[in-house]
Nucleic acid binder design. Structure first.
Lengths: 250, 250
DNA sequence: CGCTTAGTTGAGTTCGTTCAACGACTGTGG
DNA sequence: CCACAGTCGTTGAACGAACTCAACTAAGCG
């Protein structure tokens, strides 16, 4: 399995961050931007399939996803795996490990991923000197909590078809907010990942996805899911969708 | 259904908070305590069964649970309900609503509950003047995220018996940390609540609980679950248990 | 060329569901 | 005081959703 590797060669200055111009993210003051720039230590690149963070590790760092898709998961001792949520550009990862000492979940890259690395030691400085950014971190933690609430509702109470529809609609909407699709709306994921997210077996996941495909809501590609009709997917799940407010990130 | 009502008659001073002496909670500086005392606006009492916060409401306040048990939940349009997590003394609630405008879940009391009410408007002051408390709020959000991760793993990947064992062991450990049991370790919950937490039907939940009772791990009471052997429950679920570090609260 | 990974499909089994009925207990109104 | 309804827990029977097992295609790679 491929592992992540540091990229010393290049550090995108925060002032030229490709994410900031997106309408989805809030504007920052020069002061905030200046601090974040100093807070940022470097960049890290991970290949598709690489483990970015591993459960049990005493993570030294905090990361923001710059590009790529990944997922957080936990596993039982006998290998049963549950995907908890997906990570995309702008998402903060490693907060649990930074704040509470030890990671309780692992993170793996779905596509090639690049990350901004922040210095854990400067986190207290951030809280002391930049309360607006501290508030942003809390905002992001609350947002993550909200997504987990939705996922829990989905796994606990929706049928297999509804669950699959919800998950794909969710990933589709998130991807669209971040401008991750150019024309073809393909989510880089295998059916095994979907199964591990929905709490279903691979076989049943496959049969469920076929039903969605038969309705022309999705189309399955090499190793990706193309979304043809996100609205109907959301409707099948009885899901309201994400709110479109501008959000912070580091 | 009973509703919550304000208690104007009495406001416990934070300096005499019954929770602070517990070894489970971290010590606070006089400065921090002074601010929290000013931050606290009053108290609120809710009867068992009362709805404390409702999905969709623009919550004006932030609360800390002083006494009692409750739960957070979400429901689908057709009534299917999923319990997301339980609330106990020291837990902060209403953060999502305060930070992001609108509550996305409801909260209901399991037993009579009393709450400290904080002024939402002073939250920015907290972030500006008391970074250590701001950090505490982030800590609590991250902790909630961690619990949701565990629940997700449980519902997604554990069998009915393992799920039930995990849930009861979890509630038992939390209750014990907070000194909520005096001799008899009874969790004030109905089988319907357990079913709505585990994502199972009431009938199958009942049959599953009977298996645990047959093994003398639990005993079912009037409207509560008495835990006889929390260790074995955790072992059945393959669950490591909560960490016992001291934690913050407001 | 064999080897691995991802996706597909059918057959039989198991786990959890729904439907239904019943006992115990509580509170309410006549 | 009793009759009645409501909640909570319990149990059996029949059904269905999702699982495991197994076999097979197609694509990618050393």
């Amino acid at each position: 399995m491929a592992t992540s590797r540091p990229t010393h060669s290049f550090k995108t200055p925060c002032e030229q961050c490709p994410l900031r111009p997106l309408p989805h993210f809030r504007e920052f003051t020069g002061d905030e931007l200046g601090f974040i720039s100093k807070f940022k230590k470097g960049e890290l690149a991970a290949d598709a399939g690489a483990t970015i963070l591993v459960e049990g590790a005493h993570s030294a760092h905090l990361f923001t996803v710059l590009t790529g898709w990944g997922f957080r998961y936990k596993a039982l001792e006998d290998g049963r795996r549950q995907i908890l949520n997906y990570i995309m550009p702008g998402d903060l990862i490693g907060l649990q490990g930074t704040i509470m000492g030890e990671m309780q979940h692992s993170i793996e890259a779905l596509s090639p991923v690049s990350l901004c690395v922040f210095e854990r030691d400067k986190l207290m400085t951030l809280y002391n000197k930049h309360p607006s950014l501290a508030f942003d971190i809390t905002w992001m933690a609350a947002q993550e909590e909200r997504m987990l609430d939705e996922h829990l509702l989905s796994i606990g109470r929706r049928t297999a078809l509804e669950r699959a529809a919800y998950l794909i609609a969710f990933l589709y909407q998130r991807g669209k907010q971040l401008n991750l699709f150019n024309g073809h709306s393909a989510i880089p994921i295998t059916q095994q990942h979907i199964a591990d997210t929905l709490g279903l077996s691979i076989v049943h996941t496959n049969k469920t996805l076929k039903k969605l495909a038969a309705r022309k809501l999705i189309r399955w590609q090499e190793r990706a899911c193309e979304v043809l009709d996100g609205e109907t997917l959301a409707k099948i799940a009885g899901w309201d969708g994400l709110d479109d407010k501008v959000r912070p990130f580091l």
